[in-house]
Nucleic acid binder design. Structure first.
Lengths: 118, 118
DNA sequence: ACCATAGGTAGGGGACTTCCTACGCGTCAA
DNA sequence: TTGACGCGTAGGAAGTCCCCTACCTATGGT
């Protein structure tokens, strides 16, 4: 997967951002980050929804590459896989100077003279 | 809006990530970033879809705070508003050491001894 | 006044999301 | 081996997303 078509990349990024566009799934990631790998039931205890619904959220996270599972007996230990988040940061990077300039209050400068350094 | 309830914050983040979970909308942001503020038709020229559909994408971006519009005659000039992306970066930050460690190949260390520094 | 241009809104169709309950499969314990 | 436990999947209901065509308002040119 050294090179991907632009469509594949779009699909991956759609999937990644969509996976993050849900408070339950973001909370799962936070739990795995703060408390380490856990089985499904331990995660499910933190939410009001039924366990099968959480299973579906875990599937979305798995397909986005944000978690992995390891089978241990009858449990499945879920673990945070942060690598895709590095792609989010990469995507974010070209925008960084825009919000930094805005915060400094001189944000209109570049708006007036575009595409000179694009 | 110094403080918001956890639910409001969840809703805002849902909305923000959902706005980014679409290749057309990410491309709109890129165009505004690389070419500066533009009217709707100039943006629409880059896409295969009909203009009303693009208008709806612009509405999603507006409601996420990612673009602003300025009325100039019968045109509406859309402009990138990058500030919400700073919140994405803030959200990302606590995960950063996880992918950095993973890239260095020593990623299993913390997985074994969790919550000691959370 | 008239018409063309710029762009938003209404309403509808098809696909997808997010929850649910019911159920199936594999594993551990008696 | 029988049962309970851990977890995924099937299927369905309600809502949302993303595209379309039709239509509306507002501005500018003649």
């Amino acid at each position: 997967m050294v090179t991907r078509s632009a469509r594949d990349q779009d699909r991956d990024q759609d999937q990644l951002f969509a996976a993050l566009a849900n408070a339950t799934r973001r909370e799962v990631l936070r739990l795995l980050r703060d408390r380490g790998p856990q089985p499904v039931q331990a995660l499910a205890d933190h939410f009001a929804m039924r366990r099968p619904s959480l299973s579906e959220h875990l599937k979305v996270l798995r397909e986005a590459g944000l978690v992995s599972e390891e089978r241990r007996g009858r449990q499945r230990i879920y673990r945070l896989e942060a690598a895709p988040l590095a792609e989010v940061q990469d995507w974010l990077h070209p925008y960084e100077r825009f919000w930094r300039e805005k915060l400094k209050g001189l944000g209109d400068l570049l708006d007036r003279m575009p595409e000179d350094e694009a």
